[in-house]
């Protein structure tokens, strides 16, 4: 079965069982998102993709499209909300863009550019978080983790390793690694894992590669994420 619904007045076809997000992606309509990656089961945690569907606020990634549904996506009100959510993410961690190798190809940045965020403005939390450089090929900088759980899902559902987990609760929730020491180097993680290639920010990065593409010529430096799409899909193309 299939049908159609509308996003900001544009008619979008869908197959039964498709989420608003998936139908939008297929129709090349951009709905901002961070924790969503069509390769994995929808999560609904970042809330960036919240749209209104027949007036009700829902996450586009976890809400099924239905016939005749009227979805509002890029309204002033929704974009303002998204900017607030982005600001919360920025102040929650330590996002020092000028010092980050992922800068320019970072989805958190890219979505913030798209939504017109000039500054995080809230009070910064400056949490004290560690960097795990124990693995020979991959480095984890927990300062940049936004808890999208894409690495958790990729390692569990694709790699079959469950290297990553979430521990703690509330503002103390944090990414953990399954190994006797809790460090990546002692885990079953491999740089060829899917989990190494899904991080939307600079939390999980390959070692020994720095600034191969100069700042200013990176994925989102020239064009908006609404045009070029998620960074993970580009990495898959590069690698594969």
């Amino acid at each position: 079965m299939s049908g159609s619904f509308s996003i900001d007045g544009v008619t979008v076809p869908f197959e039964t069982g498709q989420s608003i997000m998936d139908a939008a992606l297929a129709a090349k309509i951009y709905i901002p998102h961070l924790c969503h990656n069509p390769e994995f089961q929808p999560h609904g945690s970042c809330r960036l993709c919240c749209v209104t569907a027949n007036g009700r606020t829902v996450a586009a990634c976890t809400t099924l499209a239905t016939d005749g549904l009227e979805v509002a996506n890029e309204t002033h009100e929704i974009t303002t909300r998204r900017r607030l959510l982005l600001k919360l993410l920025f102040v929650e961690g330590n996002h020092v863009c000028p010092a980050c190798e992922k800068s320019g190809a970072c989805q958190l940045q890219a979505v913030a550019y798209h939504c017109g965020m000039l500054a995080p403005e809230f009070v910064h939390f400056y949490p004290k978080r560690a960097v795990d450089a124990s693995h020979p090929e991959t480095i984890i900088d927990f300062n940049r983790c936004i808890l999208c759980e894409l690495c958790v899902r990729a390692s569990r559902d694709h790699d079959g390793k469950s290297v990553f987990n979430i521990s703690g609760r509330g503002i103390d929730a944090h990414l953990t690694i399954d190994s006797p020491s809790g460090r990546l180097g002692d885990s079953r993680f491999s740089a060829s894992d899917k989990a190494a290639r899904v991080c939307p920010v600079g939390a999980i990065l390959p070692k020994h590669r720095g600034y191969e593409i100069p700042i200013g010529r990176r994925l989102y430096d020239q064009e908006s994420i609404s045009q070029v799409g998620d960074v993970a899909s580009h990495r898959e193309q590069e690698d594969g």
Partner: peptide
């Protein structure tokens, strides 16, 4: 007007907040 990363979020100097 806050001009630049350091004025906006502390920037590189704020890395000492660790």
């Amino acid at each position: 007007v806050a001009v630049g990363a350091c004025a906006i979020n502390g920037g590189i100097p704020a890395m000492r907040n660790q």
